[in-house]
Nucleic acid binder design. Structure first.
Length: 267
DNA sequence: TAACCTGTTCACGC
DNA sequence: GGCGTGAACAGGTT
């Protein structure tokens, strides 16, 4: 379920399992969809390489190779990775499998084929071409403020736009706006500086906490809105954790949005 | 059964 | 070019 925090857990998982091991081959199911380059070229460029480092920007993960190129991974909505040895342990939907010299394998799990893998020579140029701005954890307040003030779209849409800030997904956007008490339909360019500061602070706090908890949303504080999204077998009600008003659930900016009309008034 | 869904891109209309 | 909307992608979950 990859938003930024999950991709960060994947990054540390790969760092703890795959580094410094020679890749002897790779299998790809449906390469025309999942690969960003021709299959034979991908195989040639990955074979006999080792992963030696990593970098994450928003939901984009780059594993550094020992020839200076980067293995690019994007997890779509449902991507995951799993490191295993025995064929019997191959996870379902592991449509791309890397084989290492030590006999272990890395499965890139693509249940819905929304995931993508490629080879990138220059990460910064790649991100610029993809219009991905600075990561949540590194963007300056000034850059963030400028981005929000120049958009006339609603703030929920703005936060999800990776060219504004990289890493915010639908669930985090709702919790950020809830914590900062901003209505998701507020127009970005109309927001006061203090509202933008609250959004910025909430965004950092929520993302840092999510990473600390290894993106395990069940462990998030009870006052987080995410628990209202049907997790934990209805252990949580759909009342606002602050004021017990019944939460609103609407399509806003084309995405299902949870918010509290009382705590997040549209002023 | 049918509706819904975490991300992204694209086409279209204004 | 900006912005909103809806479709498309594919299969799981509810």
């Amino acid at each position: 379920m990859p938003e930024l925090p999950e991709v960060e857990t994947y990054r540390s998982y790969l760092t703890g399992t795959c580094l410094q091991q020679v890749i002897v081959g790779v299998d790809t199911e449906d390469p025309k969809k999942l690969l960003l380059l021709p299959e034979t070229e991908f195989q040639e460029r990955i074979k006999n390489r080792k992963m030696v480092g990593s970098r994450r920007v928003g939901k984009n993960l780059f594993m550094e190779l020992d020839n200076g190129e980067w293995l690019y991974m994007h997890f779509g909505m449902t991507g995951d990775v799993h490191y295993y040895r025995d064929h019997a342990d191959k996870p379902k939907h592991a449509r791309i499998v890397f084989y290492f010299e030590n006999g272990f394998k890395l499965g890139f799990i693509c249940p819905r084929k929304f995931e993508r893998i490629g080879i990138v020579e220059n990460v910064d140029a790649f991100l610029k071409q993809k219009k991905v701005n600075e990561d949540v954890l590194s963007i300056s307040f000034l850059d963030f403020k400028t981005q929000l003030q120049k958009r006339k779209s609603i703030v929920k849409t703005t936060l999800l736009d990776q060219s504004v800030v990289a890493g915010i997904g639908n669930w985090i956007a709702d919790d950020v706006l809830f914590k900062s008490k901003v209505n998701p339909s507020a127009i970005s360019s109309n927001l006061s500086e203090s509202s933008i500061k609250r959004i910025f602070d909430a965004m950092l706090e929520i993302v840092k906490l999510a990473i600390e908890k290894d993106a395990n949303y069940v462990d998030f504080p009870a006052e987080y809105l995410i628990h209202a999204r049907g997790w934990g077998k209805h252990e949580y009600s759909s009342e606002c954790p602050n004021c017990t008003t019944e939460l609103s659930i609407e399509k806003i900016g084309g995405r299902t949005t949870f918010y509290c009309t009382n705590c997040q008034p549209l002023t």
